[in-house]
Amino acid sequence: MISMAIVISYDDDSLLDSYFSDCANHVVSFLKTTQLEITEVTNNQCNSAYFDIKVLPLLSNNKSILIIFSHGNDNSFLCNGTPFLESEIAIDNINNIIIYTNSCSTGKVFGKAIDISGGTFIGYEADVRIPKDLNYRRYFVECDNWGIFCLFNEKIKLVNLRQAVKVKFNQHIDTLCKTNGNDFFIASLLREARDNFVVLGQNLDRTII
């Protein structure tokens, strides 16, 4: 059973401002209601040296969920354009690791590498877009984090997670489509994210708490 959550994020992003830290604050607020030990990694700590020295030992010694809010590409997680975690991650304890993220495209290569190695990856396999209008961002924060709520509050199995998250996306899409104007465009962004959300792993018929 998962005993530790490590939450990685940074703020003042050149494209998304505080979006990643907003996601982190939202999920940490929820995780504090659980029995998990929580470690936060933020801002200038989002670099490969800090990850290797401080985060990898935590992952290697615990049954952990690593939650990452950052930019990404097929193969890596990025902070200010620089990779701080790539698919060659060396974790001896990989079978006890779950990686949960809202980073673009990391499911395409990174996630599959984690799957093959015996871990579990939850995230997006293609690029997702976040609206600039702050009035709509709460929908995306909630959808990005809904899987965490389902896993630790609803206690659903990993194999059922994708469908549960899809339901939350659809609720917000339906709400937006009932209005006029720019809301239809925002709904289309949520559809893109919903359709690219994946859960990868070799042992998904289980709960994690």
Rank of each mutant, 00 (worst) to 15 (best):
S103A: 11
F152T: 09
Y50V: 12
I89N: 11
I38G: 06
I116T: 12
N25D: 14
S87P: 07
D144T: 11
T34A: 03
N170S: 07
A24H: 07
D205C: 10
A164K: 11
F169W: 04
L56M: 10
F69W: 08
V199A: 01
H71E: 02
A90V: 03
H172F: 15
I116C: 06
I94F: 06
R138E: 11
D74C: 07
G123S: 06
Q163Y: 00
V198R: 10
F149Q: 10
F51Y: 03
I2N: 08
V28Q: 06
G147P: 05
L176I: 06
I53C: 04
F149W: 10
F51W: 05
I130C: 05
M1V: 06
A90C: 07
P83H: 03
R137C: 02
Q202R: 04
D22C: 04
D144Q: 11
N170Q: 09
Y50S: 07
N153S: 15
I97R: 00
N170I: 03
F84S: 05
A126I: 04
S21N: 13
V165F: 00
I6H: 05
R138H: 14
K63N: 12
C150V: 01
L56P: 00
T101S: 15
I53Y: 09
S87G: 14
L204P: 12
I8S: 09
Y19D: 01
N160Q: 13
R191G: 07
L66W: 03
F30H: 08
F51N: 06
C46P: 06
